[in-house]
Amino acid sequence: MTTALFVSQLLNGLQLGVILFLVAAGLTLVFGVMDFINLAHGVQYMLGAYLVAVLTAWTGSFAAGLLLGLVGALVLGFVLEVLVFRHLTRRDHLEQVLGTFGVILIVTELVRILFGSAPLAFPTPAVFAGSVTLLPGLNYPVWRLVILVVGLAVAVLLWYLVNRTRLGMLVRAGSTHPETVSALGVDIDRLFLVVFAFGAMLAGLAGAMAGPLVSVEPTMGDRILIVAFVVVVIGGIGSIKGAFVSALVVGLVDTLGRAFAPDLLKVLVGKSAAAAAGPALSSMLIYLLMAVVLSVRPSGLFGGRSA
């Protein structure tokens, strides 16, 4: 194995990690602040990709499309919160699961009616097309580097918001002592609305970042949702820091597992056994990771409260 290959796999893992972080951040905030399980978070990721794809095609500029698309994602977040989610916040977890599952079905089908089942075109923005040489023998796609930078920037921004602002203080307090926060006279409903819409926008941003890489189609949120939940749970519910660390770990484990597990198995158990077990094993690695983490730390890596 060459250094170039290893470095590029490392970058790939980190880049998958930051996408997962963008999706998981909103999920864990909503979870933490309002104790609310939102299965429809994957739908917001999908809507983000659709909005930016459509608006980019309409305006002819990726920058304008992205800006308008993020505003659109924010607005849709507000609308969904007011229409459905706010009526579910103080309900049983299972009712939230059921209600938000219903929302997935409705939104996915509406998108299918509007745009059809076929995947939408979402070309890489021309400025960021192609690849650059990072090391001798290592060409890396520019867009994946852009994703890395954007993801890390959002992480820093979130860290600042949560740790250095009044809103962040409320969010942190809300996730551990919700009664105290409402006793302080803070309108917890409005706090939730803001956190929720912001989370929806982050998911939308993740969708827009992933758009040039993956097939933009109505069910694209389903798969990312489950992985995002894995990230949130490993990190500990409500913890932004946990979500960040765990997103990077999951991204790395998944990517490096796919890259090297089959070869490693070949050395360990022989070629034919490895051919049979390798792909199955690398598919289940992240679930294995979650099971191991939870059996050692039942509230995740950074989770204080068992929700």
């Binding site: 590029s8 995947p119 060409n139 993956v214 990517t255 796919r258 890259a259 792909p279 690398s282 598919s283």
Partner: peptide
């Protein structure tokens, strides 16, 4: 690869490293 796989970066890096005469693939749909 996994069925329904989203990210092929790990595989593409491997392919680039192997530098073959051609790639044959079967990846229906998305």
């Amino acid at each position: 690869t996994q069925l329904g796989q989203l990210d092929f970066s790990a595989e593409l890096a491997k392919i680039a490293a192997a530098n073959p005469d051609a790639l044959f693939t079967f990846m229906p749909g998305g």
